[in-house]
Design a protein around this nucleic acid. Structure first.
Lengths: 161, 161
DNA sequence: CACAATTGAATTGTGCGCGAGGTAATTCGG
DNA sequence: CCGAATTACCTCGCGCACAATTCAATTGTG
């Protein structure tokens, strides 16, 4: 628009992409918090539970690779989940270094209560899942974000250029 | 693909969108950290500086509305920026409740060093800014994220339905 | 003017993310 | 079989985010 030059435009453009991602992430986290509060779990804890609901009794390391989190984040988080009675932490018999995370009865029961959260969230985010067009848009956005994350990570691993 | 039903698909789909956003945000933050580390600032601090570089001498409240952060986040962050000699915090003469944030000489000088960060980041994220198609894709993604964030916020403000 | 309501920051407490360092268990090379 | 390297996890410290509370300054009202 203005004649202030491309420098400012590009700067602003990039800033807005990164800030948009940052803001969108926080907005969605807040939305999840509202839905998850009644269940007594946080959004990151919910992500852990999603993994466990699919495949129970996983080592900490596997949760880490699934979620992209290290033990410095997971260990205290899993302890909080244990304190709240949702998971159990047990040393593996085969390899005593490994700590396996298992859902308790309460942890398993929570899955039913969480079942409608994704749909509510999608609605809250403005996607009408009954419209194929909306589903496609959602999928497209997800793919772009995945590509973005992967690309950035790959670039980081090659600091040569 | 499988016949496990739409419940699982929808659940997984939504999970993947939100998780994709979560993962992309962390990936981009890591990328910024790598670029900002030499300048001695964090990504949220960089966002504050971006605002100040555009409009110096702003009240804390204005930084808050620009970035969507409250004083609980900003106050300690601004103190760290002050400790690092990049900004000054001064009570407003007109209204003693207001604390205005001003760039120091060092804070202003940092703008030059930060000037090429957005372009580097865009490259790192896989966007070739010399290609109009890539610029359009970047703008589109940004708009989608902005819409997403805005929509979620609006939904939160109307918990009636 | 007095006083209630509002506003702008600061403070407190919780929970991530993540880098760095430490420890115990396991594996590997000789 | 023994010592070195590796692995899996834990611990610690820092810096956000954010809700909730507090406090001082200002504004509005009778």
């Amino acid at each position: 628009m203005s004649s202030r030059g491309d420098d400012d435009n590009i700067l602003a453009l990039d800033n807005q992409l990164c800030f948009a991602l940052y803001a969108a992430h926080r907005a969605l986290t807040r939305a999840y918090t509202a839905l998850l509060d009644p269940l007594g779990v946080t959004y990151p804890q919910y992500l852990v539970l999603l993994v466990l609901w699919e495949r129970d009794h996983r080592p900490v390391s596997e949760l880490g690779t699934c979620l992209g989190l290290d033990s410095g984040t997971l260990t205290p988080m899993l302890k909080r989940l244990e304190d709240n009675g949702l998971v159990e932490r047990k040393r593996d018999g085969e390899d005593a270094r490994v700590v396996r995370i298992a859902l308790t009865r309460a942890g398993k029961a929570l899955e039913a209560k969480a079942r409608d959260i994704p749909v509510k969230l999608a609605e809250c985010a403005g996607f009408d899942l009954s419209k194929p067009k909306s589903v496609v848009a959602l999928r497209r956005l997800r793919e772009q974000l995945r590509t973005l994350a992967d690309t950035v990570v790959i670039q980081e691993l090659e600091p040569l250029s």
